[in-house]
Design a protein around this nucleic acid. Structure first.
Lengths: 131, 131
DNA sequence: CGGGATCCGGATGGATACTG
DNA sequence: CAGTATCCATCCGGATCCCG
C-alpha cells in the first residue's frame, strides 16, 4: 500500500483501481454521505439524523451508522440516561475524506450538465426508430 | 447547480450530498474505474479491455462501456472493417474526473490501515461473548 | 470481433412492527 | 429514544448462448 502506483510514463496499475474502489464502496451507500455531512459539525443524535435526512428509514440509518462506525468514520457515544440518548460524530479521518469528496462536487458542478446532456442525447438516439 | 452549497458557517446543505452521490454512482460500479484507467491513455479495443481487466465478463464489460458512453465519459468508435473493430477512449471530462479520484487514493493510502484496524476491532468486540 | 438476450443468485435498500 | 427483526422489492453482477 505504501508503494507508488504510477510509473514514469504516468501509467496506472491495477492496484490503483482497487484502492479507489475500496474507499468508494465505503461511502457509495445511498445515505453514507448525508450522515457524514451532518455529523461533521459535531455530535448529532439518532433522531436528529432520522428527521433531518428526510426519506431514510430507521433500518437504513442504523445500518449506515453501523458501517461508518465500523470503519472508524464516526464515533458512537451512549448517554445512559433514562430515555436512552446516543450521539454520533464524524472522526477527523472522515472529515478529511469528506474534503476529498468535495473535490468531486466541483467536478460534478462543472460537468454535471454535460453528463445530463450526453445522457439525454444517448437515450434519444437509442429510442430513435430506423427511420 | 451553479449556486453555492455552503454558507458562511461552512455548513453543507443537502444538495451537496446529491451532487457527490451522483458522480459517485457513476463510477462506483465494480469495473468502471478499471475501464477508465485503461482508456485514459488512448483508444483501446474491446478485446483488449476484456483481456486486460481480468475477471470481467463480456456482459459486464459491455454494460460498463455503455454506461460510461452514455454519460459522455468515453467515446465509442466503430471501424467497419470485415471483422468489426471498436475502440474506446476516455474523454477529457473523464480524465479530469479520474484526477479527482486519485485524490481519494491518497486518503485511502493514509488511512486505509486505520480503517482496517478499526474494522477488525469492531468485529472482535461484536464477536466477544458477554463474559 | 463485438456485442445482445436471457436466466439466475446474492447483495442492497425500503416498510413496518416490535422492544429495552 | 434508539434501535432490532422480519419481510419484501429491486438491482447488480455472473454465466451462458446466440447473432451480425
Amino acid at each position: 500500500m505504501s508503494q507508488r502506483h504510477t510509473d514514469v510514463t504516468g501509467h496506472v496499475d491495477e492496484g490503483q483501481a482497487c484502492a479507489i474502489l475500496d474507499v468508494l464502496n465505503r461511502v457509495s451507500g445511498k445515505w453514507s454521505i448525508a450522515v457524514l455531512i451532518r455529523t461533521a459539525g459535531g455530535p448529532v443524535r439518532f433522531t436528529e439524523l432520522e428527521r433531518s435526512i428526510e426519506g431514510i428509514s430507521r433500518r437504513m440509518l442504523t445500518l449506515t451508522l453501523r458501517n461508518l462506525e465500523r470503519d472508524g468514520l464516526i464515533t458512537r457515544t451512549v448517554y445512559p440516561t433514562v430515555p436512552a440518548k446516543v450521539k454520533y460524530t464524524a472522526t477527523d479521518m472522515a472529515r478529511e475524506l469528506y474534503d476529498h469528496l468535495v473535490g468531486l462536487t466541483a467536478w460534478a458542478e462543472r460537468h454535471g450538465p454535460a453528463v445530463v446532456a450526453s445522457r439525454a442525447a444517448y437515450d434519444r438516439a437509442a429510442a430513435a426508430p430506423a427511420t
